[in-house]
């Protein structure tokens, strides 16, 4: 008798699962491209000058939302990205969404803000290695040199005509996280595979 699973987690497919093997095949010591599927993403709106809002976010995520524009903060395996003057994206590992939302929704709403599950909106692509910047520079209008784009910087911008949040997460080697909408992910991944081909050993 065939087993019919009703476990949604066993059935789900990430936006880039079908070309994951090609991202791996293109990766080299010079640059690697990987999807991190199903990362928990929670949209936060609120007034960062309100202590209650900061407290609510900090007690759930371990860190308060960054006030400086275009920056991200990290706390263990969680991070908060600045998206706008009253808007942030909290990112955490797969499977932590229900727990985090439970902790955030009430207190954030009480502080006049909102916390909304946006997990299915975007997937995360990590581009890392000595030539990671060289790959991204082929389609990104920002100056990605470390003097202008240090670790901890995050910008909403276009890469290969797709809207992304681009976050720099490390310098040794240079590592970037690309948050791309699910429906644009395949196009962007194909573009990255093509752009990285010349660096393959």
């Amino acid at each position: 008798m065939a087993d019919i699973t009703t476990d949604a987690k066993a059935l789900r497919v990430s936006p880039l699962e079908v070309i994951g093997h090609r991202m791996v095949a293109t990766s080299s010591p010079r640059v690697t491209i990987n999807e991190i599927p199903f990362e928990t993403q929670i949209g936060l709106r609120g007034d960062a000058s309100k202590a209650a809002f900061n407290r609510a976010v900090k007690s759930a995520l371990g860190v308060a939302p960054p006030k400086e524009a275009c920056t991200a903060v990290e706390a263990g395996d969680r991070r908060i990205l600045w998206l706008g003057p009253d808007e942030w994206l909290a990112v955490a590992p797969d499977d932590t969404g229900a727990d985090l939302l439970g902790k955030l929704e009430g207190p954030v709403a009480k502080a006049g803000g909102a916390a909304i599950d946006l997990t299915a909106n975007r997937t995360v692509i990590v581009v890392s290695g000595p030539d990671a910047r060289g790959v991204l520079e082929k389609g990104c209008l920002h100056d990605l040199h470390p003097r202008a784009f240090p670790t901890g910087r995050v910008v909403g911008t276009l890469l290969a005509k797709s809207q992304i949040f681009l976050e720099k997460t490390g310098d040794k080697p240079e590592t970037f996280r690309l948050y791309v909408r699910a429906s644009f992910a395949r196009h962007l991944a194909e573009w990255l595979i093509d752009a990285a081909a010349e660096f393959a050993a």
Binding site: A69, L83, G84, P85, E87, V155, G156, T157, L158, Q163
Partner: peptide
């Protein structure tokens, strides 16, 4: 409007 950035 900063469509692809902060959306403000």
């Amino acid at each position: 409007v900063h469509t692809h950035g902060c959306r403000r």
